[in-house]
Design a protein around this nucleic acid. Structure first.
Lengths: 100, 100
DNA sequence: TTTACATATCTAGAATTATAGATATGTTTT
DNA sequence: AAAACATATCTATAATTCTAGATATGTAAA
């Protein structure tokens, strides 16, 4: 749980939005075809479409979010699905509450 | 209350430390001479000494923290004292709790 | 009213982050 | 096995942040 590293992730509007969108995938993304639920999160392509940024940029963003343990990737066939890591996200808020 | 702007402040170890130190000035800084309490916070010089960074850097940091409304400056003679803005700090944690 | 002092602002170079095109990797389909 | 597809990584440039020295401003002391 690294305040500085997580704050760096949150210091970008798009990355904050991605986290928010992932709270409610069904509301923010089209349904997946190969998988009829969002249990493992949302595929990179949908996230990219929603942001309008390039594929490599979004992949880089998701990688930094994964390094900070804010999201968890799961591979299904050729897709990678990302979902929130609620434990870490809530833990971060708690740490701020206590330490900040 | 801007998540991105405040996160930028928190994405630097020194700035996070300054906020933490200001929670308990009497424990983290020497007593002031012109003022015998810490009601208005801590003067820039003490903060600078504690960090070991240059005067201009600390002044810049404090300015960014003030812009984000995380700290409140008060001038006494030739000194400027900075204290935490608890309302905004707690408010930020609440916003994260709800929105993130 | 100079001088000294505390802090703020200006300026500039170094370091980091943002962003995307090109390419690589792994998977599925044909 | 080749082609198509989704994502990751590499490479490079633009933009931003970091940091400090120099300078300016405001206040107090001599």
């Amino acid at each position: 749980m690294n305040i500085v590293e997580i704050s760096k992730v949150l210091s970008n509007k798009t990355r904050v939005n991605i986290l928010k969108w992932l709270k409610n995938p069904a509301e923010n993304f089209p349904p997946h075809q190969d998988i009829d639920h969002f249990d493992d999160g949302v595929c990179v392509g949908y996230i990219q479409d929603k942001t309008g940024l390039s594929q490599s940029t979004i992949s880089t963003y998701l990688n930094s979010m994964q390094n900070a343990k804010l999201v968890i990737p799961t591979r299904h066939g050729k897709w990678t699905y990302y979902r929130r890591n609620e434990e870490v996200i809530q833990g971060y808020v708690k740490v701020l509450e206590n330490e900040l």
